[in-house]
């Protein structure tokens, strides 16, 4: 276990460093610095400003300073566009929003996906099964940028039940559509995995024994079949959780929730490189960290897994 943790860390840390270096190189390769305005600044003034932001230092010094500040102070440097806000401020503002609906989307996807999958497996080859399979095939390849406009057409324009965007401090009406848009495809995958692994378990010998003993069906399903059937699901929902937290750029943009993706795309339009870099690195670190935690959890939950 310890060796495994060390081995995973040995991959994770270079990955993070590589990510930082790649983004840094990209930023220096970019044509035009952040202070190239339409009216060029006098060279002396430009030199002063660059000195203030540390841009007159050699590249290796800038990189090591940048990494040092992130690790020690959680400081991603100043934004190149907003004078009064640093990258860390922007992250602190956007990240809780993303985290909030990302978390709810995760909960919704897991609960609805697992129940759909169980229902489909228990009523194998019934209309319920076909419906569940149909839904999951349909929803799985439906990208969320198609899902989001469809939701707005139905719930905002036709039915007028829910607002089609905004956040409003996270009131529930504003959270519902982002959560649905984000969770659908994951829900579909979870349902499919649950169904197939549940079917496998239900055909196992010990389930037949339980039936022969005359146990009620609900008890068989929830006490005996569910636990082993959920292991493959577990190995899917770990990475899915990370993807949901990081992959919500579209939801942020389409529903204007003010989450982290919204700032990222905004920065992309404004060429605000430091914000883009900060968010890219944060997302990369989160992805790597969560994957590490998830891997360790499996090794702990399922002792059969050997690395």
């Amino acid at each position: 276990m310890f060796a495994f943790t060390m081995r995973r860390l040995a991959v994770a840390i270079p990955t993070i460093l590589l990510l930082i270096v790649i983004s840094f190189i990209l930023m220096f390769a970019a044509p035009g610095g952040p202070f190239n305005a339409e009216r060029p600044l006098p060279p002396a003034v430009l030199a002063n400003i660059e000195a203030k932001y540390g841009l007159d230092q050699p590249y290796w010094k800038q990189i090591t300073d940048y990494i040092y500040n992130i690790v020690v102070h959680f400081d991603f440097g100043p934004s190149f566009k907003y004078r009064d806000r640093s990258v860390s401020d922007i992250i602190a503002q956007g990240f809780p929003v993303t985290l909030k609906y990302g978390f709810w989307a995760f909960v919704v996807a897991v609960i609805s996906g697992v129940s759909l999958g169980i229902a489909a497996a228990v009523k194998h080859n019934s209309w319920l099964d076909y419906l569940a399979v149909g839904i999951s095939i349909g929803a799985q390849s439906l990208p969320n940028f198609v899902m989001a406009p469809l939701l707005v057409i139905v719930f905002t324009l036709w039915l007028g039940w829910l607002p089609g965007g905004g956040w409003n401090g996270g009131q529930w009406q504003y959270v519902v559509l982002p959560v649905i848009a984000l969770s659908t495809s994951y829900m579909a995958s979870i349902a499919r995995i649950t169904r197939s692994s549940m079917l496998e378990v239900l055909n196992a010998g010990y389930i037949r024994t339980a039936r022969a003993k005359g146990l009620p069906t609900s008890r068989i399903i929830f006490r005996h079949a569910l636990k082993p059937a959920l292991l493959p699901v577990l190995s899917y929902i770990g990475p899915a959780f990370v993807l949901m937290i990081t992959g919500s750029v579209l939801v942020d943009v389409y529903f204007s929730t003010g989450g982290i993706g919204y700032y990222f795309v905004n920065a992309a339009f404004n060429r605000d490189y430091s914000v883009m870099m900060g968010i890219t690195i944060l997302m990369g670190v989160l992805t790597i960290l969560f994957n590490l935690i998830v891997d360790l959890l499996y090794a702990w939950i399922d002792p059969k897994i050997r690395y």
Binding site: L26, A30, M276
Partner: peptide
């Protein structure tokens, strides 16, 4: 394969957008 592992852990949607904006 370790190189592939490392590249796979990078959030590529963000990097592609970074590339597109910069170049």
């Amino acid at each position: 394969m370790r190189i592939v592992d490392i590249l796979m852990a990078i959030p590529f949607m963000f990097v592609i957008i970074l590339l597109l904006v910069i170049f």
